[in-house]
Each structure stands twice: as C-alpha cells, then as structure tokens.
Nucleic acid binder design. Structure first.
Lengths: 350, 350
DNA sequence: CTGTTAGCGCCTTCAT
DNA sequence: ATGAAGGCGCTAACAG
C-alpha cells in the first residue's frame, strides 16, 4: 500500500515549558513575547532564542480567553443606498454567530464618505474606542491624516474597497482597479472579435479614484492591443440610472458603429434601457462591474456579456479576519486575504 | 454629521449565567448544549429555552482551551506528481503557523486514489485516529463504503476536488465541473467570434468523472449556442504531455479548419507543443484548466486564451475550516466555503 | 527588572 | 439525573 505520511504542525509546548527551559518565570516570557518593556536585554535574547529553538506558538484560544475584554471593530461605510456596500453589510450580518462565538463586536458607522471633512471627523470620533477600524476611504489629505492619527493611537486600520495608499493603514482590502480596467478592456476587445467600430466608456465620475484607474487600465489595453477599435471620449453618468441613460442615448444617436461598451460604475439599469431603446442590446458587447440582482439578470438575458467583480462577501470577511489577526499580532495569510478580480459570465455566475 | 450606528453581535453571557437563569448547574447546561444523555427531558427543555431566549453562544476560545487534546485531521491525497495537488499541499504548509496556534495537527497521507480498493483500505486505516478527514475521492462503491464507515464512526469527512455525491460525506469542497465545462464552452465560442470551423476537445480520460462532466457541459453549450462550430470527437491524452502532443498533431494534420481547442485536463505542455509545431498557436482559441507556472506563461504569451481555475489555496483552507467547524459543531459559512469557477485571462492573473 | 497568583469560560472527571 | 471542583494556557495585576 503505497502510503506516505507527512505532518504539518504538531508541537504542543506551553509558555510554562519555555519559561522553565529559559530559566525565567511565566511573566517574563509573556513580556518578551509581546515586546513589553522591563526585561534586561540579554534575558530577552535568551528567551527569544528558546522560543525560536522550539518554534513555540502561543495557543490563541488561551490568549483570547485570558484577555477578558471583548474586541471592538468599527466599519465606516457610505451612508447612501449603494447596493454593493449593502452587500458587504449583509455579509457582515451573516457572520454574526461567528463573531459572537469569538466575543467580537462589529459596529457599522454610516457616514458621508465622499465629503473628506465629514469622513475625517467620523474617524477622529473613533479614537480610543475601537481595536480596529475598516473604512471605505476617500483619498484626500484630511482623510489620510485621520487614518494616520488612528494608527498612531494604536488602532488597527484597514481600507476597504477604496484605498488611501499614502496613509499608514495596515492593509488594503480590495482590488487593483487598474488591472480590473485592463481585464474589462481585454474582454471587450476579445468579445468584439473581427468587427471594427467604436467603443464607449461610461463612468460615474472621472474624479473618483477607482473609476479613473479603471478607465486608465481599459484605455491602455485598447490602445495597445485593439488599435482597430476607436475609443470614444468618456461619458459621465454620476452613477445614476436616468442620467446614464440620457448620455448614452445621445451617443447612440450620433454613432451608428458602436460595437463595445464599458460601464465603469453603477447606473446599470440606465445603460440597459439605452441599449434596448436603441435596439442594440444584442449587438453591442457590454461589460460592467459587480454581480447584483440586476447585472445577474442582464447576464442571463445576454444583454450584458461579462461583469468584472470583487467578491463582497470575501471583502467583508477578509476585513474582519485581517483586523483580528493584526490585533492578535498573528501573521496574515496574504494569499487568502487578497481580493481577486473575478470575471463573471453567464455560465459561472456565483 | 449624518451618522448612524448599528452593532452586529454584542452579547457576552456565559454558561454560568445560563445555569443560574435556568436554575441548574454548569454541568447540566453543558450536557444539554452537547446533546449528551443523562438529563431529564423537561430539564432539557427548560435549559434549551434559556439558551435560545438569550441567544447564548458559548465562547469558542474557552471551549477549545478546555478540551485539552489537540485535534487531528488527515488529508488523503493522490501519490503521483500532480501539480495541482502539490499546490494544495503547499498551501496547507503555508498554514502551519495558523494551525499550530490552534493546536491542530494536519497529516498528509499519499495514496493511489485511482485504485478504489487501495483508497478504501487507506480510509479504513484512519478509523478512530482522526477528528476529520479530507479525501480526494474516486467515485466507486468501495470508496463510498469507506467514507460512510468513517462517518458512522464519528469522523467528519469532506471530499476534496473530486466528490462522491452518493456517500454521506459532510461536505464537498470543489467546483461544479459541469458548470466549469459550460464556462469553457462559452469562452471558446465567444472568443472564436464570427469565424466558423471545428473545435477540438482533449481530455485525460473520459472515464474520470470530472473530465466527463466538463466535456458534458462544454458540449451542451457548443450545441445550443454555437451551432456553427462543429465539435470533433473527444481525444484522450491520459494527462500526459507526449501522448497529448501526438494525438493533437495527428488531428491538426487532418483538419485545417480548427478554430478552437478545449483541454479538459493536464498535458498542457504537449498541447502547446502541438500548437506551435503546427504553426497555429496564435490562430486557435485555446482554453484549459488551472493556473500553474506553465499555464501562466502560456497566458502571458497569448498562446492560451483563458484558464478555468479552482483556487487551490482556497480549497486547502476551506477544507480545514469546514472540518474544524464540523468538529466544533459550529455553523459553516457556506458562501465562504463555496469554491468558485474562476475565469483567468492574462490581465487578471492572480 | 522579575516572579507569584488569580482568574478568563468551558469541559471533564468524580461524587452524590 | 444532577452538582462540585479542578484544570486547560495565557494575561494582568500586584509583589518583591
């Protein structure tokens, strides 16, 4: 019986064992383990060595139990009725039993995240009350300062969906929007195939960092790989259905040779309306973002050809896990927490 | 400041609180909590009611600590040098610190999973020694019996990558292969575009359940949505490079009008060789499975157009998490543990 | 600077 | 059928 066994992780030493081996007390090992002051340098060295030699891992369950007080995390989210954000909140809700069993309290804080001073004020108000904060952040100097202040106060901070790379946040939970735009471009180009013609881009606003990045990636690919397809100037629909429909309708009137359409943000219903009223919903290759009830239906109907998606459930859970790992001082499983750019077509709808 | 707060999970009751409220002792509550015998029916009812009324959640950390003995999980994996399986094993290795901190021991057991009696024997040998078993299973009556015996003995069992739906395994960690085949079909069809011609299918063996299912899904989509593309009879390459190259070379000789190619299993290097030697690596739309060093390179080179992938890291972690949740009696976050069918193209390579 | 000690909340014998 | 009591491994006072 060709059998071969290999064990991953087995050890079971305790703090006490380390203390004995190093010739010190429990408390001293604990101090070293948490880089707390009050230990002579060479004692530190001796203890660290013993820990390393034994590949000692403190038992998280014991540590958690001994802490006493529960951990509190805050999620600072946009106050408007954004379906994607609502999905994230819903998935947090699904975790409630999981959270309760670990004595973790998650609080949702709704704010106008598009107003830098309001958002910054909300962040300031959190100081000291939470072990960790996840925030859908606007990239603005005041917000950056707010984040940095929290970090300085010892709070763990992760940015969610929208990043502030220049801040000292511990982690970003979200996708690379430039790559997402490139992916959209490759799909539009490939799905259009041999045909030549024009490609339209509709964004919420080019002032939004994520939209701008997606457009950048999209244009990059179109220019370098599909030079036969002319890209029309970017339209703005403010992520609203009505406005999106109007600007697109006007565009369809002007150009009869549109073969592809990239919707960078929301306003999807408006896009679908404009396409069907122009009678072009089957001819134009239409790629957009996120899987919602609406995009799901459009994909099934064949109106939409592909959706670029970031998994909201994954983002919700990753944010909690990363905040928890940071708070505990545990390593982060980076491959697990990385948010992928999903290509969703009709047959692999989740 | 438009601010609104909402708390998810807050409680912090303990077993003792429940005991006092129900007018019984700690031990009795514990018995009820774990459906252990030795409690009068109406006491059970009273305690359960108190638990429900307070939405009481036992603290996992305390439970884990009190158990004393560590948990042992076994992963029964194919013994051959399969790159995909090696990836799963590597990701398990990456979790070792995480596992150690939770006093979980994971053991890899290499077996000839393609021989039903050998696999069944391996499973039998595990009885009683493990809290949970993950197995890459062949769908065969003897294997099914082996799985059921383990389940009956109280071991938690999950099937990994390859399922035995008729067994009583607690969970399947893997993708829906029919949907994966459909996704491949939709991609080949859409990427071929206007051109007409023939589509080739290369599988390892049609006797393998997952390969058969993928072919089924693929053919379904081709027939219903791309009737203009003729599907050639399925070739078999035994997942070997040499053989795959040979059978494809012969096919390319016979048919000058091949526009699409679906590689259902492994042997990818052979496929690439055959394509380039026939000078058709840029004209034929080539879709295959899994992201490996090789398929990654082929995607970047433009030889391969898309890879259908199941995330091996996700599968490894999901298997561990599900076994752990089952062992603890915790609910499973089904959306988290579901393995998605990933479409990977050049621009969204992970 | 270092050690001692009392829990954290639950599980598990062992009594009753 | 039920209860009492001792730990599991770590943290956090408090002593020295």
């Amino acid at each position: 019986m060709a059998e071969d066994t290999d064990t991953i992780a087995g050890a079971a030493l305790t703090l006490k064992d380390i203390a004995r081996q190093a010739g010190v007390s429990l408390a001293t090992v604990d101090r070293v383990l948490h880089n707390r002051p009050g230990v002579r340098p060479d004692t530190v060295r001796r203890v660290k060595e013993t820990i390393a030699r034994n590949a000692f891992q403190p038992h998280v369950a014991a540590a958690e139990l001994a802490r006493g007080r529960p951990r509190r995390f805050a999620f600072v989210m946009p106050s408007g009725p954004n379906p994607f954000m609502q999905q994230i909140e819903a998935y947090l809700g699904e975790m409630s039993a999981w959270l309760a069993a670990r004595r973790l309290a998650v609080e949702l804080i709704a704010t106008d995240v598009f107003d830098a001073s309001v958002l910054a004020a909300s962040l300031e108000a959190l100081a000291g009350d939470y072990d960790g904060v996840a925030v859908v952040a606007l990239d603005h100097p005041r917000v950056r300062a707010g984040i940095n202040d929290l970090v300085d106060a010892g709070t763990r901070v992760v940015t969610l969906v929208s990043d502030v790379p220049s801040s000292r946040r511990h982690h970003y939970i979200g996708i690379d929007n430039i790559a997402a735009g490139r992916t959209a471009g490759a799909l539009v180009g490939r799905l259009v195939g041999q045909k030549s013609g024009k490609v339209a881009i509709l964004a919420g606003s080019q002032g939004l960092r994520d939209h701008a990045e997606r457009i950048f990636g999209f244009s990059q690919v179109m220019a370098s790989e599909f030079p036969g397809l002319g890209v029309l100037p970017v339209l703005e629909g403010r992520d609203e259905d009505d406005r999106s429909e109007q600007v697109l309708a006007r565009l369809f009137d002007k150009h009869a040779d549109i073969v592809g359409l990239y919707n960078v943000g929301a306003g999807t219903q408006g896009v679908a309306n404009a396409l069907s009223e122009a009678g072009r919903d089957r001819q134009v290759v239409f790629v957009g973002h996120d899987v919602t009830v609406l995009t799901r239906r459009l994909l099934l109907q064949g109106v939409m050809d592909a959706a670029i998606s970031q998994n909201p459930g994954h983002e919700a859970r990753a944010a909690v896990r990363v905040l928890l790992a940071l708070a505990r001082g545990e390593p982060i499983l980076s491959e697990q927490e990385k948010i992928r750019i999903d290509i969703v077509m009709r047959d692999n709808l989740p």
